[in-house]
């Protein structure tokens, strides 16, 4: 196996076809979850082999892939770049080459759809963590990507906001691939991958995967099966 100039292999060789509507990825910190997600939209390119989304290779069609794959990060503040939410959504819409009038009305629609139109003109610094993450989702979904990739979207949120973001994600039409440390959230998916030290150690239905993961970190609940 060839190694990178920096000599670190982040993900062992793997062969995956991701077609389910809701796919979760669980595993310890540093197990390669984020690397796997970043491969899907071409933020990282594989040192060997190929990654293709709808038949488009991330290496040669990177921009096309990124347009059809939305990516949400753990910390919404590193994702939101404009002073207010409305402007951030309009920035996303720029990639669709709309006129500025169309951008404005589309941005309004998007914010209404996510129930945050009352926050449209507030500074993203003044929003709560949950509001920020919902805004980050709105910003990414404004261009209607066909797939949403979310890297621990609820890790920084309190319980109520965690529930809000999860129900929002559950209601999306898009295919969603997400990582999480919240095993309840993982159970809401159709298929779960368990990663350990850069290797996929389990791939299957969510409940079996969660059981496997609990065993893996020997944190199975007392009195469990």
């Amino acid at each position: 196996m060839r190694t990178h100039p920096e000599g670190r292999t982040l993900l062992e060789p793997l062969d995956l076809l991701l077609a389910e509507r809701r796919i979760s990825v669980i595993g310890a910190n540093g197990s390669g979850k984020s690397t796997l997600l970043r491969l899907i939209n071409g933020l990282l390119l594989p040192t060997e082999g190929t990654v293709a989304v709808h038949g488009n290779d991330t290496r040669t069609m990177g921009r096309t892939v990124r347009r059809s794959v939305g990516f949400v990060f753990t910390d919404p503040l590193s994702q939101l770049v404009m002073p207010t939410g409305r402007e951030d959504v309009e920035l996303s819409l720029r990639t669709l080459r709309l006129s500025s009038g169309d951008r404005r009305s589309r941005a309004g629609e998007v914010l209404r759809r996510f129930g945050i139109d009352h926050l449209a003109d507030r500074s993203s610094y003044d929003l709560s963590g949950g509001e920020r993450q919902i805004l980050a989702l709105a910003v990414v979904l404004a261009t209607e990507p066909r797939i949403l990739v979310a890297d621990e979207p609820t890790t920084l949120l309190d319980l109520r906001n965690d529930a809000r973001v999860r129900s929002l994600i559950a209601g999306l039409d898009q295919q969603v691939v997400f990582t999480t440390h919240n095993l309840d959230f993982a159970l809401e998916s159709d298929r779960t991958l368990v990663l350990d030290a850069g290797r996929i150690v389990f791939d299957g239905p969510a409940d079996d995967a969660v059981a496997h993961y609990r065993q893996l970190c020997s944190c199975a609940p007392l009195g469990g099966p």
Partner: peptide, 17 residues
């Protein structure tokens, strides 16, 4: 909805730059 297909094959390093 058409099921989306994402295939991931191979090794990943930090092939960023």
């Amino acid at each position: 909805m058409q099921p989306a297909r994402t295939t991931v094959t191979g090794t990943a390093g930090t092939g960023r730059r």
